[in-house]
């Protein structure tokens, strides 16, 4: 494990980069996911179609392929983002689809009576969704949302494809530099666990805190 200790500063920088990528992408993905879930349950057919198209196309394309297509492809149609910005865009779009499906599942778990009661009070559809349904829906899907967050921490390592720094990239570089492949990646595995395990704990705590007591 000497390789990791000798390059501890690099591993710490890699952890910081992965945290930055994950937190920013999850923030954007959350907005995207909730809005898309709203689209998919809305009474307006074009919105439902748009939501379904986005989810089905992006979610069913490998993330590595998305990285290459978005960074090396979109420049030909004039979309020229910096590499870090593009990493956030791709990770947000990809994670947004999983969030959308999870939130939609949560919405479907809220009993019909809740929505009907809200509508009978004269609320519009967006009001029903935001004020009445979503607060109950999200509480029930805290655990799967945590899984998506954890997956995002690990998925962000694919940002290496467009040369954006992250913990996985640190392991690659240290492995090549020191010619100690297995210790380098064992170090990366431990560092990822240091990020994901506390996340799991925090999600468990959050779930208990927001649980609906029926």
């Amino acid at each position: 494990m000497g390789v990791v200790l000798d390059n501890l500063d690099q591993f710490l920088l890699g952890m910081r980069d992965t945290v930055v990528l994950t937190v920013l992408s999850f923030a954007f993905a959350s907005v995207l996911g909730v809005v898309t879930a709203g689209f998919r349950v809305s009474p307006v057919p074009p919105l439902r179609v748009a939501g379904a198209a986005y989810v089905n196309i992006i979610r069913n394309t490998p993330l590595a392929v998305l990285f290459v297509l978005f960074y090396f492809g979109l420049v030909y149609v004039g979309i020229n983002f910096a590499r870090f910005t593009m990493a956030i865009v791709v990770l947000s779009l990809y994670t947004g689809t999983f969030l959308a499906e999870t939130v939609r599942a949560g919405i479907n778990s809220v009993s019909r009576g809740q929505g009907e009661a809200a509508r009978s009070l004269g609320m519009t559809f967006p009001q029903v969704l935001v004020i009445v349904v979503l607060p109950q829906a999200i509480r029930t899907v805290v655990q799967p949302l945590g899984s998506i967050f954890s997956a995002l921490i690990r998925n962000s390592s694919l940002a290496t494809i467009i040369f954006v720094a992250n913990l996985g990239r640190t392991a690659d570089a240290v492995a090549v530099e020191t010619a100690q492949v297995v210790p380098s990646y064992l170090g990366a595995a431990v560092a990822y666990l240091l990020l994901t395990l506390p996340t799991g704990q925090a999600v468990g705590w959050l779930e208990r805190k927001v649980a609906v007591r029926r």
């Binding site: 090396f72 030909y76 494809i161 467009i162 040369f163």
Partner: peptide, 17 residues
Amino acid sequence: IEFASYALCKDELLNGR
């Protein structure tokens, strides 16, 4: 800037990045 292949590097040179 390091990518997985020289073909990607060549594309980046051609599009000026």
